[in-house]
Design a protein around this nucleic acid. Structure first.
Lengths: 344, 344
DNA sequence: CTGAAAGCGCTTACAG
DNA sequence: CTGAAAGCGCTTACAG
């Protein structure tokens, strides 16, 4: 590998001059240096550069699962925003595991200026490596079990789930099921609680049989739905995220259950390809791309010096998108799609 | 930030000894060093480490689009395999742009030991930065316009597309449409050619009106299908990848076209959530996870010393998965799903 | 097993 | 504008 010294020698200048050339400052021997660089095929060693400068120009992102459409979109938002601000993005997958998350953290902390992190489900307290490095951090979508002194971007999970519950009640449902995410994660717990609160307002209780707590992955959506359907099936089900919704829909299909005539269906998070499905699914929607972009801009502000501000906690609104997967409870015929039936 | 020197001082040993402790070698003052590390909350600086050792333990991946289900799955395969081999994965998005790809390349080349790359569509020749660094490289899914001396993992795009064409012909279609990917990319071109070859075998020609060349993204699938439908619509359409298939299906739905009774539909790449769709889509399928894992294991072999072998070009088989989106061409009634009709 | 020393490739005050 | 020199934090032969 050729170094800055090789270039300097060939160009007849000092290494310092070559370095200055790369940092854009004017130098006298520009032509010679440029020639030497071309001839040797030289490009600067990023590692050596950042060892000295203390800056990498990179931002790290750690998320549980890239194939989760929510995270895919959020990353898209982060990516756009980081590009615009001149940062490079390094993405790592934690597979929602504490150990893998911490490994990624260690690897990234070395080579980035800042970090956006969605803590893994069994997060517990923030990893020690975070405290050691003075690396600006933004939490996205989830928080640690103990409060951390950093910026956060989440949605109002409680309100969103509550709204879903109210909607189902409003169109006449009483025997309702819920497939929740892990109660150890902030979104899992808050959506669960929010949904229950929404039912409690109307004095509706969930039967144990109709509650399933999953892990936010497709398989648990499938298992959860099978579980809920194994007893006296509810007339409506709320599924706490997109991946589990896919699994749950698969279970419905397999069981020959028609949505919404046999079962009304609401999920949290929009479904990719969701509008292609028959019926289109009613969801508690949010804007993953905007969440990601916001997280990145908060981080960028930290990186550019606002390090004395207090932590900012951004809680974005959700919105219930009523589509075609809910109807008034009725066993006989399929009720008009998307039109709330009068309350029973 | 605390350094190895701080730890050494506190433990009463030399920096070299602390360094040896971290590399797992036995040292006498182990207890003292361990205490010092804990007390100071020290963790080694990855950058400094790799500057000296020339090794990072990281592998970089550059793909066009994380939200493309194919790449999401491929990355999953890479990720699993890299974990198993003790590498950390840094993922970058090129957004299928040459410039962004090259930026990511430069950023990654500094901090990884090896690279897996899907060249952007308008790839052209391999970027200079690649040649400069002696960084092992594996190409995934696509190749550069000029051959590069490195390992490759692709699928047999030509054969796969040809098989799709034969199938459509076999079940009776004659007026057929195709929505292809960019002909500047290897998969785009080979699928296009393969499909045409498959038709030519039966002396079927594509009408210009029924050919659309898109960019592999959802929007162009939509536009392409609208285009194809704007003339005398074909009885069957082949769409060259998953994202465009989603867009194309959206266009069908919007146009009130029923699949397969009004239009038979085959796509390349399995669709995420595909089996949930009505009808389930017949596809030229492959195994993205396996492709990713293979790419990573080829790379790992290079990293572990097999640098004198000739480049290995792995071309994996595709498989036609017949589902419910194709039927014999008929305008009156819906023919039995999935059962090939006798050739006209 | 251990320490002093050189060096990985680059940058940056410091003099000029 | 430029060069000599020190140093970023760590590792690794080299002697002991």
């Amino acid at each position: 590998m050729t170094t800055i010294a090789d270039v300097a020698r060939l160009a007849g200048v000092s290494p310092a001059t070559v370095s200055r050339f790369f940092s854009g400052r004017p130098i006298r021997a520009e032509a010679a240096v440029r020639n030497a660089i071309d001839e040797l095929g030289y490009s600067p060693n990023a590692i050596a550069k950042s060892l000295k400068s203390g800056r990498t120009g990179n931002v790290g992102v750690i998320i549980p699962d890239i194939s989760d459409p929510y995270f895919a979109s959020a990353v898209k938002g982060i990516d756009m925003e980081s590009r615009e601000r001149g940062y490079n993005l390094f993405l790592c997958n934690s597979d929602d595991g504490r150990e893998r998350q911490d490994q990624a953290l260690v690897a990234l902390l070395g080579v980035v200026d800042g970090l956006i992190l969605t803590p893994s489900i069994e997060s517990g307290p923030p990893p020690a490596s975070l405290a050691r490095h003075a690396c600006p951090l933004v939490l996205l979508d989830r928080e640690f079990s103990e409060p951390v002194d950093c910026d956060t971007v989440t949605v109002d999970n409680l309100a969103g789930a509550k709204q879903a519950a109210r909607y189902l009640v409003e169109i006449g449902h009483r025997r309702i099921g819920v497939i929740s995410g892990p109660l150890t994660s902030t979104p899992g717990r808050l959506r669960h609680e929010g949904f229950i609160q929404g039912l409690t307002e109307s004095s509706i209780e969930l039967e144990d049989q109709n509650v399933f707590v999953g892990d936010f992955r497709e398989m648990d959506g499938y298992i959860g739905m099978k579980h809920v359907l194994s007893g006296l099936p509810p007339t409506a089900v709320f599924v706490a995220n997109n991946l589990m919704a896919i699994g749950a829909l698969r279970a419905c299909k397999e069981s020959g259950l028609r949505v919404p005539s046999d079962l009304s269906f609401v999920s949290f998070d929009d479904l990719e390809v969701g509008t292609l499905l028959e019926p289109a699914i009613t969801t508690v929607g949010r804007h993953p791309t905007q969440e990601g972009a916001l997280a990145m801009s908060l981080l960028a502000q930290r990186l550019e010096g606002d390090s004395f501000d207090a932590p900012r906690r951004c809680v974005l609104e959700t919105r219930l998108s009523v589509r075609d997967s809910c109807a008034a409870p009725s066993s006989g015929h399929r009720s008009p799609v998307g039109i709330p039936a009068p309350t029973a």
